[in-house]
Design a protein around this nucleic acid. Structure first.
Length: 261
DNA sequence: ATGCCCTATGATATAGGA
């Protein structure tokens, strides 16, 4: 079984590359983030034509998540339990489903913007709702393989950014954000470290300043798996080739290969 | 080489991304 997660930075703009990648990489399940479209505008038809059914959860211009599967899509859950709103809106940042016996969550954790911004406290509250939701699911089905995959918008360690000195006073590397990841792990998840195709662990490179070719990246797209899931994994890797060329997302897909449960 | 920001929006600027 092949599972992947990919922040596509607009499914509309990325559709040609997404379709090509589905054909070449042939994943069974794909978690997408940053659709930047409404659920109604999600391009189901060309994706279905490749054999995937999809649940898309998007409320417009920002965020939006989806799960694509060609091995079943059951028990779909939109949003986290008690997911906090931002500016009065519960944003479309989480969707869960069971695919081929594996429980998956596609998540797009809020950015946080600046450590003293409202968005940052929102980010931490959002993480706690994620932790709580996962805790409940793990308790209800401890033997079911489960993974939370997506754009966590936190680099777990200093080695997960190209130069920690560049991140003074910025989000994504602060202690409270990393503590939020640790709290998730404490519920029984492990951070599955992906194999790199080129000696750097990054999954995101800014569009600006030639960041990709300079190796100025960050590992913020993560795979958090319970032991039942981790025990099935044969490989985890970052498809950085997908960051190359014209019309690329600023994130690369992270691919997980595992034995079917 | 992978090459110096991109996307959606009531749009000719702006907000958000990280």
């Amino acid at each position: 079984m092949r599972i992947a997660t990919w922040n596509v930075n607009s499914i509309g703009a990325r559709l040609p590359r997404v379709l090509e990648w589905l054909e070449s990489a042939s994943p069974d399940v794909v978690a997408l983030q940053e659709l930047k479209c409404t659920s109604a505008d999600f391009p189901h038809m060309p994706i279905q034509a490749l054999g995937y059914e999809a649940v898309a959860h998007g409320n417009g211009r920002w965020n939006g998540v989806a799960l694509l599967s060609r091995i079943g899509l059951e028990d779909v859950t939109l949003d986290l339990t008690d997911q906090p709103p931002y500016d009065g809106v519960v944003e479309t940042r989480a969707v869960g489903a069971t695919c081929g016996g594996v429980r998956l969550w596609s998540v797009y954790v809020p950015n946080g913007r600046e450590p003293d911004h409202d968005h940052y406290s929102y980010k931490l509250a959002w993480f706690d709702a994620l932790r709580s939701t996962v805790k409940t699911e793990l308790a209800a089905a401890p033997d079911t393989p489960l993974a939370v995959i997506g754009d966590f918008n936190v680099a777990p360690t200093d080695a997960d950014v190209w130069d920690i000195a560049q991140f003074t006073d910025s989000t994504h590397v602060t202690v409270p954000e990393r503590d939020a990841l640790a709290a998730l792990r404490a519920e029984g998840l492990v951070d599955l470290m992906p194999r790199s195709l080129k000696g750097e662990p990054y999954t995101f490179w800014d569009y600006r300043n030639g960041a990709f070719h300079r190796g100025w990246g960050m590992r913020i797209d993560l795979v958090y798996a319970n032991p039942a899931f981790a025990g099935l994994v044969s490989d985890t890797w970052i498809d950085r080739n997908e960051r190359k060329g014209k019309g690329a997302s600023d994130h690369a897909p992270v691919v997980i290969d595992l034995e079917a449960p």
